[in-house]
Nucleic acid binder design. Structure first.
Length: 598
RNA sequence: CGGGGCGUAGCGCAGCCUGGUAGCGCACCUGCCUUGGGCGCAGGGGGUCACAGGUUCAAAUCCUGUCGCCCCGACCA
């Protein structure tokens, strides 16, 4: 049992002016954290206690499927060069030199180090599968740290890596993590959703994020309350209502129409008196596409075709062009490639690349001025569309795919809009901001291949091991809990991760009967497995109640004037519900609310 | 990296425009008082005014530069 009067719990009446989100304000006010620099925080006593409780849960659950290691945060350059990520990580990686001038970095994640161990030590399929995990500090030089502990430059991550001999093994390792993650987040008292996610340039085949809905979040998630479908906006799709096509032009062919001063889709639709979704929006980008024989980066024009009132998702486009980088065209580039001012662009008459499929991504074959044209799925099968004619003040009507223009590829590119139908069951989708607290995905052979992690299979043949990568942001569990469980006075953590499960509050410590009874109660609860904080400070009751409400402890036991009748008061922080309980019944009563030994 | 804002006591802020003794609330220390929702009274401690340079008899205040922090955007394995 700890005595508040002896502890360092620096609570504040006011939040620092630079705190915006609830978790940040309360973590500072409740004396959990103090900032050292942008995105770098010291964890004080209460924070450290809850983080240890969280990692205890993580460790306990992870031990059911894997083995804990502890790997260096300080990494030599060559390991990261072996995977190719020394360059890829760019400014996001902290880099330093040792006294001999050798390059080192601080680990952002540990695929490289784990794979390095695997390639040096694993020899046979008989040693597989393996699941190795660690709980370690990670360093990322975020361009913009923000929102307290939500986006920081130094944080704790549980990261694990699976090594399997085949796809089926990887599927199993993935499913094991999925199940364990659900248990971990449930035990921490989080309401979360598992969502389909974009695997990005990691090249994974399946990727799932664990998200907590909160306005403090930076991701957008679409989910279906009926069937449970959920997807990151970068991945989510929806059932779209069919759009009625316009009738064909009387000529049966496309027609060029004079549309003076109509630079936006809405202008064109209004001018032609056609629904916006019968218009095709043309978005022009410049894309990098490999290097020329001379070593120069090739820049290639990229045209994206969307329905008139759809928004394009950049992550989806990135996937559609094999992860190549792109940016919007500048005005003079538009004129150069389209021979037309912006506002009247369209796909008709553009020179296009040929596509040669290889095993990973499409190869574009053609001169550097030849276009890649990617069309959104929502346009597939549509007829008699309207689009710019690549000429000032003119648009085409009656455009048909295959007749009037070709596309290089067709892909899902649009952002789902709230209220659209769930792709599985048709129910209206909900869209909300969310924080990512965990991510599991199938890496495949990306690192094992580039770094040469191979074993012999049962036929004596050398095969590359298949990997998965699985992360949990430890501090984000804490912040997400606070975002989910707070009011104007403070927050309440789940008893499993709260720094203390109960605070015993003698209303007046000068009254020795109250203090002694409180101590006795505290000892009794400790014996039953509760972490008890005794608020023995010589403060007025109001001060103690305010502090207790602030710091996240789920239960409070008030020891006051009713003690004369043998009664104390149990207050549940989450509901503010207060119950008078005879001291003799206190333990049973509390166990009914939460039993640490259960 | 682009845009905006802010740096004055532990926290929240005023003072700066119009240069002249550095202030307020909370917190902290001492004493008294009080004890069921941040109580009251009296006394007290604490600030190189982010840093550097300049202007001036005199700079928290005006000028220049630098650093730091926050917000929006870009970015984000």
């Amino acid at each position: 049992m700890q005595r508040w009067s002896k502890l360092f719990i620096p609570t504040l009446r006011e939040a620092p002016a630079d705190a915006e989100v609830a978790s940040h304000k309360f973590l500072v006010r409740a004396g959990y954290i103090r900032q050292l620099a942008a995105g770098i925080y010291s964890y004080l006593f209460l924070a450290q206690r809850t983080i240890l409780k969280i990692t205890d849960i993580v460790r306990e659950e992870m031990n059911t499927i894997g083995q804990e290691l502890f790997l260096p945060a300080l990494n030599p350059r060559d390991v990261w060069e072996a995977s190719g990520r020394w360059d890829v990580m760019g400014d996001n990686m902290f880099r330093l030199k040792d006294r001999k001038g050798a390059d080192l970095c601080l680990g952002m994640t540990h695929e490289e180090i784990m794979t390095d161990i695997a390639r040096k030590e694993l020899r046979s399929y008989k040693q597989l599968p393996q699941i190795w995990y660690q709980i370690q500090t990670k360093f990322r030089d975020e361009p913009r740290p923000k929102s307290g502990l939500l986006r920081v430059r130094q944080f704790t991550m549980k990261d694990s890596y699976s090594f399997d001999i085949d796809r089926a093994g990887l599927d199993k390792s993935f499913d094991l993590h999925d199940a364990v993650y659900r248990r971990i987040f449930n035990r921490c008292g989080l309401e979360f959703v598992a969502v389909e996610a974009d695997s990005g340039s990691m090249g994974g085949s399946q990727s799932q994020e664990f998200m907590v809905y909160t306005d403090a979040g930076e991701d957008l998630v679409a989910s279906c309350a009926k069937c449970g479908y959920a997807g990151n906006l970068e991945k989510a799709t929806s059932k779209l209502e069919a759009v009625e096509d316009l009738p064909a032009n009387p000529s049966g062919k496309r027609e060029k129409v004079y549309t003076p001063g109509t630079k936006t889709i809405d202008d064109v639709a209004a001018f032609l008196k056609t629904p916006v979704n019968n218009n095709m929006k043309s978005l022009a980008f410049m894309m990098t596409d490999g290097t020329s024989p001379a070593g120069a980066t090739i820049h290639r024009p990229l045209l994206v075709l969307m329905r008139g009132n759809d928004q394009m998702n950049e992550a989806k486009l990135s996937g559609a062009v094999g992860g190549r980088e792109f940016r919007p065209m500048q005005e003079e580039e538009i004129v150069k490639y389209f021979n037309s001012p912006a506002g009247y662009l369209g796909p008709v008459g553009l020179k296009q690349v040929r596509v040669v499929e290889n095993k990973d991504t499409a190869n574009y074959v053609g001169d550097a001025d030849q276009f890649v044209v990617v069309m959104d799925e929502a346009l597939r099968g549509r007829k008699n569309l309207v689009s710019g004619a690549n000429e000032l003040d003119y648009h085409f009507t009656g455009l048909n795919i295959g007749t009037d223009f070709e596309v290089t590829a067709c892909a899902d590119l649009r952002n789902v809009v709230e209220g659209e139908g769930c792709p599985r069951c048709g129910e209206a989708l909900k869209l909300g901001k969310a924080v990512e607290i965990g991510h599991i995905f199938k890496l495949g052979t990306k690192y094992a291949e580039s770094m040469g992690a191979k074993v012999l299979d049962s036929d004596g043949k050398e095969v590359t091991v298949i990997m998965g990568s699985y992360g949990i942001g430890v501090e984000r569990i804490l912040t997400a809990c606070i975002e989910q469980r707070h009011d104007e006075n403070g927050f309440w953590l789940a008893p499993s991760i709260a720094p203390f499960t109960a605070v015993v509050t003698p209303v007046n410590v000068k009254d020795t009967a109250l203090l002694e009874a409180s101590e006795k109660i505290g000892q009794q609860l400790e014996a039953a497995g509760y972490d008890v904080l005794l608020d023995d400070r010589n403060e007025r009751p109001g001060v103690k109640f305010k502090d207790a409400d602030l710091v996240g402890i789920p239960f409070r036991i008030n020891v006051g004037k009713k003690l004369a009748e043998g009664k104390v008061e149990v207050v549940e922080r989450a509901t503010a519900q207060s119950t008078e309980v005879a001291v003799a019944d206190l333990l049973t009563h509390l166990q009914g609310l939460y039993n640490p030994r259960a």
